[in-house]
Amino acid sequence: LRTVEMKKGPTDSLGISIAGGVGSPLGDVPIFIAMMHPTGVAAQTQKLRVGDRIVTICGTSTEGMTHTQAVNLLKNASGSIEMQV
Rank of each mutant, 00 (worst) to 15 (best):
S80P: 12
M36R: 02
E5Q: 15
C58N: 15
R53P: 07
I18N: 00
T45K: 04
G9C: 07
E82N: 13
R49K: 14
G51R: 04
E5T: 15
N72I: 05
D52T: 00
V71A: 14
V41K: 08
R2A: 08
G23Y: 00
K7L: 12
G20M: 00
P30M: 00
R2I: 15
G59K: 07
G64Q: 09
T3A: 05
P10D: 12
T56Q: 12
T66Y: 00
I57F: 09
L14Q: 02
G40W: 00
D12C: 08
K7A: 09
K47N: 10
V29C: 11
S78V: 12
G15E: 00
R53Q: 15
T60E: 14
G23C: 03
G64H: 12
T62K: 01
L74T: 01
G21M: 01
Q84H: 00
R49S: 14
K7S: 10
T3N: 07
I16M: 14
T39F: 12
V71D: 14
G20D: 04
G79C: 07
P30V: 02
C58R: 09
T62W: 01
G27E: 04
D28L: 02
K47G: 12
P30C: 07
T60L: 12
T56H: 05
K47L: 11
Q44I: 06
K7W: 15
L26K: 10
A19L: 08
D52K: 01
A77T: 13
D12Y: 02
S24V: 00
E63Q: 13
P25S: 11
L48W: 02
T11H: 14
S13E: 15
A43C: 07
I54C: 02
H37P: 05
V50R: 04
T68Q: 14
S80A: 11
S61L: 06
T62D: 01
G59I: 05
M83W: 04
S24Y: 08
G21I: 01
T39Q: 15
M6N: 00
H67L: 13
K75P: 02
I81H: 06
M35C: 14
D12R: 07
Q44R: 14
L1V: 14
G59F: 15
V71M: 14
T39P: 04
V55T: 10
S78K: 14
G9N: 09
G51A: 03
S17A: 12
A77M: 10
M65R: 02
L14F: 12
L48K: 04
S78R: 13
A43D: 00
L26H: 12
S24T: 06
C58K: 08
M83H: 02
V50T: 08
T56F: 00
L1M: 12
A77G: 08
V85S: 07
V22G: 03
I54Y: 02
G40L: 03
S17E: 15
V41C: 08
M35V: 10
S13D: 15
G40P: 02
V29N: 01
S78E: 14
V85R: 05
T39C: 12
Q84S: 10
S17Q: 15
S13C: 14
D12A: 09
R53N: 13
R2L: 14
L48E: 03
M83E: 03
A34K: 13
M6I: 12
G27C: 04
S24K: 02
H37T: 14
T68I: 09
G40T: 05
S17K: 15
E5D: 10
I57A: 05
Q46H: 11
P10Y: 05
S17L: 12
S17Y: 13
S80G: 08
D28H: 07
V29H: 06
G51M: 04
